[in-house]
Amino acid sequence: MLGFVLQRILQAALVMLAMSALVFVGVYAIGNPIDVLISPDATQDIRDATIARYGLDRPLWEQYGGFLGRLLQGDLGRSLVFGVPVLHLILSRLPATLELAVAAVLAATLIGVPLGMYAGYRPDSPLSKTIMTVSILGFSVPTFWVGLILILFFAVELGWLPAGSRGETVEVFGVGWSFLTANGLKHLILPALNLSLFKLAMMIRLARAGTREIMLSDTVKFARAAGLSDGTILRRHVLKLISIPIVTVFGLEFGSTLAFAVVTETIFSWPGLGKLVIDSIQSLDRPVMVAYLVLIAFLFVLINLSVDLVYALLDPRLRRGQVA
């Protein structure tokens, strides 16, 4: 098990190195931030001084080397626009996105899996058909449109929930969290619901397909022949077998929600990472873009590593080095 973990960590480090090089070169190719940063009527001296200050006169490989060296010391550089360390900037925005992503993916899983299992267990019942119809909507209706409808309905018409922003936050570990206050939770519901609809549909389909297949298997027939009730079979036999694809999708969805919640964050003016990175791209704020992309790559690597470890917990066949 330890060897497996070490091997995965080594792989992760290589992925990170490759990713950082790709990101750095990619961002370098997009455009020159100097054109955005300095007004066109600045003198050539000021121009040169600024370029030298940010090290932009150096060759690409030297800039990348310097970036890697500082990265290893935990220094991601300073934002060209805000003038504050990038790490602070990202950390101040991360909690907002993190709680949104966790709420959305968790809700989708906790609601979607039971619904999907029911639909797989009783495929012909009217309730199952309703569930499947709703899941088709979740797949096919665009996020931004659902977001607007949610605001229109719950915020404007009914006035039950706020239309945007994070609401009250509580400071824990030096950063603000919304989900710890009633007001913050109220602000969280609509954007989280908006983000989770697609994932909910996916979880329903996944759980349904798995349940249908497993309910027809010899394993379930044998368990039934031993007198186990359908409830026990669903809870113990089916859930355990469908949990592996569900954990996979959970991990992937969690990662992509963290990285690409931009649309929802924009609609609900949720001050998360997505908004930060869109702003940075517009102002060619190179250090922020690079740091953000490297961070996202790191999160994906971390999530995939956790998913692999959870696999090994769930399925004894995947535990290596175990003697029979």
Binding site: D218, T219, F222, A226, G227, K240, L314
Partner: peptide, 26 residues
């Protein structure tokens, strides 16, 4: 529910392929 109480207790069944009948991860 009454039939379930009979199965496994008073009348049991064994299947053809033991590779398929036992739950693989329990």
């Amino acid at each position: 529910h009454a039939l379930r109480k009979v199965r496994g207790r008073r009348i049991a069944m064994i299947f053809q392929d033991p590779m398929m009948t036992l739950h693989p991860v329990l």
